[in-house]
Amino acid sequence: MTQAATTTSSSSLSNVAVGAPKSSLGFTLLAVLTAVLLALTVYWGFVVAPVELQMGVVQKIFYFHAPSAYAMYLGFGLCVIGSAMYLAKRSDAWEAIAVGGAEVGAIFCLIVMVTGPLWGRKAWGTYWTWDPRLTTTLLIGMIYVAYLLLRNLGATGEAERRFAAGLGILGGALMPIIHYSVQLWRGQHPTVITKKGGGLHPDMLIALLLGCAAMTALSLLLIWARARIEQGRQRVLSLELDAAEQGLLEGQA
């Protein structure tokens, strides 16, 4: 225990970012943009866009269901990139991005898996069917839940962290299968946007595009916040270990 070591640890602590994204101007601007886009989506989807002829009001689930699926892809995609970069560089920052992406992707996957069956109850007469897209989406959700359990419950060692990163990359391999499952296999899941223009009323299309922009901004905001918090947790843990190794925390609770 030396005075120099104590001073060094104290100065390191003052530099620790424990996930305080509020101080960032970019984060604040993104938060404002997200709020505006969400409000616009709700207004356009419920006030401007017409009620669908066959399904009625339940079709309006679509304006948040499909964008949530894209936000899920974004989250899981960032997890794949973060995991690959972690394996290549062993950087805590990339691992924090991977954790943030997986967690936010899992939240949006849950939103997709709940809102989809509610729409299906009206459209198909049943909450669930073993359609290829539904089944593969459920599978990818389970893979990333396993990733998060591994990270949160036991992945403190380097081997566990590498294994979790591998699982994060493996889960990403399912994303193209989910996206193209409608074209690859016959199923019940509809495809509204096609190469020929799809079958959306212009106001419905604007609501969908606003929803996509809003959910993309929201997912980036949440991933940013979660990654910063994870980075702060990693730094606190690292400093705690350093201090304990130097005997600075002896006799402390």
């Binding site: 104590t6 620790v16 305080a20 949440l222 918090i229 705690e240 201090a243």
Partner: peptide, 22 residues
């Protein structure tokens, strides 16, 4: 997220206090 952030703050304050007392 708020809960995780608060937990980090508590850990940081505990560590700071411990180091200051040392």
């Amino acid at each position: 997220l708020g809960s995780l952030h608060a937990k980090n703050q508590v850990e940081l304050e505990r560590l700071t206090r411990a180091l200051e007392s040392t």
